[in-house]
């Protein structure tokens, strides 16, 4: 039967939904019982240490560490590929570890290059 395994995972979604259902009322009740004074428009300005906000709140920003995010996307894939291999390690022959070591070797090379590049802060 297709779809029978999905039932196990539904409880995670149930928990997720329960937390939303249980926590959203906290916000709603708080919104109802708390005071709401709209007397001063300054109150709704973003935090700028007591100064009148200048400039845009969301500029494009923080590029120095951008390579780390690029690296994350690629090495996240690598890490979870390793799980596919690691979880079945007890069942596969020992010789079959070699392709994985080759894969890891290639990724190490890429990682060394990427770390070297991302370490050069001045170019980011």
């Amino acid at each position: 039967m297709v779809g029978e395994l999905a039932g196990n995972y539904s409880t995670v979604v149930l928990m997720f939904g329960f937390a939303i259902v249980a926590m959203a009322p906290a916000l709603i009740i708080s919104r109802m019982i708390s005071p709401r004074k709209r007397s001063n428009p300054v109150k709704f300005l973003p935090m700028e240490c007591g100064q009148v906000p200048s400039g845009e709140g969301r500029t494009h920003f923080m590029m120095q560490y951008y390579p780390y995010i690029l690296m994350f996307v690629v090495f996240d894939v690598m890490a979870i590929f390793l799980y596919a291999w690691g979880s079945s390690l007890l069942e596969i022959p020992k010789i079959a570890t070699l392709p994985m070591m080759g894969f890891l070797g290639i990724m190490f090379g890429a990682m060394a290059f990427a770390l070297y590049q991302s370490g050069r802060r001045r170019i980011w």
Partner: peptide
């Protein structure tokens, strides 16, 4: 436009 001005304080 990469540069952001932050008021640290008071």
């Amino acid at each position: 436009e990469r540069i952001m001005t932050l008021n640290v304080g008071p």
